[in-house]
Design a protein around this nucleic acid. Structure first.
Length: 252
DNA sequence: CGATTTTGACCTGCGC
DNA sequence: GCGCAGGTCAAAATCG
């Protein structure tokens, strides 16, 4: 069952961070077409900003500016994107070089992976080097491992990956999604095991790996693999009362 | 009692 | 061919 919709080219990925994407159309809210007058749109924008602030507050994140709100179409209202790299950078949690504007995240991830490789921590670094040079043997092993229960010999599907480091006492970074641990492995040259998580959403096949650096155990390396095909639950939880209010107001 | 975690076994690819 | 390492599975244990 390898039907990762999205797959190679993430069609639903919004700019900013490829792993936090919304399905299209979003299953959240269908605003009526009567929401076109200016005053209504201003009200909607204000409500969106309010919703964004509430969501960010619930996630203990810095609020996003109005230009960062993901309003895709007049009939669609999406929650604000959570740009983890920059947010973590702002919060001083992210270790390593800041994201380079204009450089795709995949390339940045590859660069981060190279940094890891150079520092001798290639255990997690390779996980982030999905698109670039590095050997694909682990990728193949992963595919084949998954293929044990399903059809074997499937075409290798390259999935978007993104790795970043955070300095935290907590191994688990609360990104708003729900994860289920499905494995843990001791990693060579590291006292700390690597944990494997899968998104618990039934149609979502996103995975992530969490591991502490051997050299600096205060640093957690999180590697995301794949694209979420459903809304962030915490965000939607925070947004739902406001969206309901919006829906109610838009009737007039 | 369902969801989640733990953990040993299993599978595959690669290097020697 | 063999051993190693990484990734995944799945049964048992644990939790809320």
């Amino acid at each position: 069952m390898e039907n990762l919709q999205g797959g190679d080219d993430e069609p639903h990925a919004l700019p900013g961070f490829p792993y936090f994407s919304m399905p299209s159309p979003p299953a959240v809210l269908d605003a009526p077409p009567s929401l076109s007058p200016d005053d209504n749109q201003h009200g909607a924008l204000a409500a969106l900003q309010q919703a964004s602030a509430a969501a960010c507050n619930s996630l203990q994140l810095p609020p996003l500016g109005p230009d960062q709100l993901a309003t895709v179409a007049p009939t669609m209202i999406l929650p604000p994107m959570v740009d983890w790299p920059s947010l973590l950078q702002q919060a001083g949690l992210m270790v390593g070089s800041p994201p380079v504007p204009g450089l795709h995240l995949h390339q940045q991830a590859a660069a981060a992976a190279q940094q890891l490789d150079q520092s001798g921590e290639n255990d997690c670094g390779e996980a982030a080097a999905g698109s670039s040079g590095g050997t694909g043997n682990k990728e193949k092993a992963r595919i084949s491992g998954a293929g044990r229960s399903s059809s074997s010999g499937k075409k290798k599907v390259s999935r978007p990956r993104f790795a970043f480091q955070t300095r935290s006492a907590n191994d688990i970074l609360d990104d708003g999604y729900r994860w289920r641990k499905y494995g843990q492995k001791a990693v060579k040259n590291s006292a700390h095991p690597r944990s494997y998580y899968r998104c618990t959403h039934h149609t979502c096949n996103v995975k992530k790996q969490v591991q502490r650096l051997a050299k600096d155990t205060s640093i957690v390396v999180t590697t995301y693999e794949g694209v979420h095909n459903h809304p962030c639950e915490k965000l939607m939880e925070a947004l739902s009362p406001i969206l309901k209010q919006l829906q109610f107001l838009s009737q007039f």
